[in-house]
Design a protein around this nucleic acid. Structure first.
Length: 550
RNA sequence: UGGGAUGUCGUCAAGUGGUAAGACACUAGAUUUUGAUUCUAGCAUUCGCAGGUUCGAGUCCUGCCAUCCCAACCA
């Protein structure tokens, strides 16, 4: 038995009850995005819930595009959504659905409502409708057209569809209760006139159904058993039920609301994400700093770790905000087991080994994974001139710093013990080179006399290393609960153009997530690079030294 | 001043009347040729507040308080 996709929660309890009572034999769920933007972490939770539930209970989950507003939707968005869902690892056994597939049936159901005297054509302007709807403290006022004969509404509705009226001239409204405390029940609009080219139906329709009318019927037509949505739709449930109770349809799905996934230092709102893209704050929807699925993919996050994260955001009714560290923890946890180790230098500092023969080099054997022998070994060239990390030298270091400082011996990973003799500075007083000596007896990284060195640092051979560009990412916002552009983190992207990487990596790097030892996990950004190979830092390693240092 | 929901460790949570799981974070220590990984220990006398019922309440009752969502011809 494999592990469940979804951990036990109040929704699985409802499903269990429904299965036990015989209300349902099988379950059917759906993920119903509007193709008006890219998928983000918030959607991931919903995807994992709906598809995960279907898998766990051996049911079905439909991917359905809720495409009832042609003004905002595009095929590009629909394609990106489909790609993202597949990338996350969920497969559908049925074709993709579209709410627009049901436009004819929706139109018929609307007529049924009119026939029953439960819907009418309203000719008030949008402003009048808004005013007469009232607000939280004032009840609404009935439309002057509310009492219009059914036959007249029917005639008008058909002529609406036939294109006889201009946009905004009239709407079809459900006749419910203008006194209701729930604004959604104050004679909600269910059809409007909108001359827009639709991504699926083209110019066939000039009237389009509204979400509240479409969604419940689409669910019912697909035989959805559990219609899972986020908390903000709770107020719409009475309307969802009202529609299904008042038309001739043999299915009434159970709408269940759960809490959205929120993340610290992140804004998850399609509107705000679009703004970042359009203002050029980020490099598109797939910028590695974006909380979009495409951004996380480009950054190097794995589908598995993203799913694990979504699973950790437990399904309840309590609005919650998950620390980013939880996501990073999920990512590190998987990467630690699957990432081969290599050595790369982010900020190179030249080292010359004075007692190593000029013009010579040798091969050093290194493990590709410290805990997993199946990753095998590799050989790395070692020579007189190396690059090490600039941070691994400190002019005035105390005893707690156990890397390079003048006179101190450290270990070059897998290679030799090296002693720093002196630092060479430029006119500005910056250290530009280290002159060192090595102990030839310590090849492999241990000494015959058993003396201890506390520090181990990574390195590359200057003449053999490859040049790469590295991009380091930080959170997009400074505030834990960012409100908008004002809270942007100016240092969310750092580009390192003179980074070095050990040889024989860049040509085999496609699709492989590497750990640059001590520096973090990196992933090749092949699609977006221009002249030099680019690696994105997926996430740093945990760094207790950095904490100590503060 | 209406309607809907939610309140258990810094964060996310389990708990369904019997004496507060777990995860992330954090702290201390051990091991370590990544200051990584791993390991070990610590981390809520208390469940928004106040009363009440009960032998016994986070769980039941009453009242109060706080927070979130809702006033697109968006979804």
């Amino acid at each position: 038995m494999t592990e469940k996709n979804v951990s036990e929660n109040f929704i699985t309890q409802i499903i269990d009850t429904d299965l036990e009572s015989g209300k349902h034999q099988d379950i059917v769920t759906r993920f119903p995005p509007e193709p008006n933007g890219f998928l983000h972490v918030g959607h991931v939770k919903s995807i994992c819930l709906n598809f995960g539930l279907a898998e766990d209970y051996q049911g079905v989950c439909n991917l359905r595009f809720d495409d009832t507003n042609p003004a905002k939707e595009s095929v590009e968005y629909a394609q990106s959504i489909q790609r993202d869902v597949e990338w996350l690892g969920f497969k559908r056994d049925k074709e993709v659905r579209y709410s627009s597939d049901y436009f004819d049936q929706l139109y018929t159901y609307a007529q049924e409502l009119i026939e029953k005297g439960l819907a009418f054509i309203d000719e008030q302007t949008a402003e009048e409708i808004r005013e007469n709807r009232g607000d939280f403290t004032h009840p609404g006022v009935n439309s002057p057209h509310r009492g219009r004969p059914r036959s007249e509404s029917m005639d008008l509705f058909r002529r609406m569809k036939a294109g006889e009226f201009e946009d905004g001239k009239m709407v079809l409204r459900a006749k419910i209760d203008m006194q209701s405390g729930n604004l959604n029940m104050r004679d909600p609009i269910i059809y409007r006139i909108k001359r827009q080219h639709h991504i699926r139906t083209g110019d066939k329709w000039c009237i389009y159904p509204m979400y509240d009318f479409t969604h419940c019927i689409s669910d019912a037509l697909e035989g959805i058993t559990h219609s899972v949505c986020t908390l903000e739709f709770a107020d719409h449930k009475p309307l969802y039920d009202w529609v299904l109770d008042n038309i001739s349809i043999g299915c009434h799905p159970h709408q269940i609301e759960f809490n959205r996934l929120n993340q610290t230092f992140t804004i998850i709102s399609k509107r705000k994400l679009i703004e970042l893209v359009e203002e050029g704050v980020v490099d598109g929807w797939d910028d590695p700093r974006m909380p979009t699925v495409s951004g996380m993919r480009r950054r190097g996050y794995t589908p598995q770790s993203i799913r694990e994260y979504a699973k950790k955001s437990t399904v309840t009714k309590k609005p919650s905000i998950i620390p980013m560290s939880t996501l990073e923890d999920c990512v590190r946890q998987e990467l630690n087991t699957i990432a081969p180790r290599v050595m790369g230098i982010l900020r190179p500092l030249k080292v010359v080994i004075e007692n190593y023969p000029e013009g010579e080099s040798e091969m050093i054997v290194a493990k590709n994974h410290p805990m997993d022998e199946s990753f095998g070994n590799r050989e790395i060239p070692f020579a007189r001139e190396l690059y090490i990390e600039a941070d691994d030298y400190k002019e005035n270091a105390n005893r707690k710093f156990f890397r390079f400082t003048e006179g101190r011996e450290v270990r070059l990973r897998y290679a030799y013990y090296l002693t720093c003799q002196r630092a060479i500075k430029n006119d500005a007083g910056e250290v530009i080179e280290l002159r060192c000596t090595y102990d030839p007896e310590t090849k492999g990284g241990s000494s015959p006399d058993g003396r201890k060195v506390k520090g181990t640092i990574h390195w590359v051979s200057a003449q053999h290393a490859d040049d790469v560009e590295l991009r380091l990412y930080d959170r997009l916002y400074n505030e834990k609960s960012p409100k908008g552009m004002d809270n942007l983190n100016d240092n969310s992207l750092e580009i390192l153009e003179s980074a070095k990487i050990e040889p024989n990596i860049i040509n085999n790097s496609e699709g492989i997530r590497y750990q640059f030892e001590r520096m973090g996990y990196f992933y090749r950004d092949k699609i977006h690079e221009t002249n030099k190979p680019i690696f994105n830092r997926i996430v740093t390693l945990r760094d207790s030294w950095a904490k100590l240092e503060q």
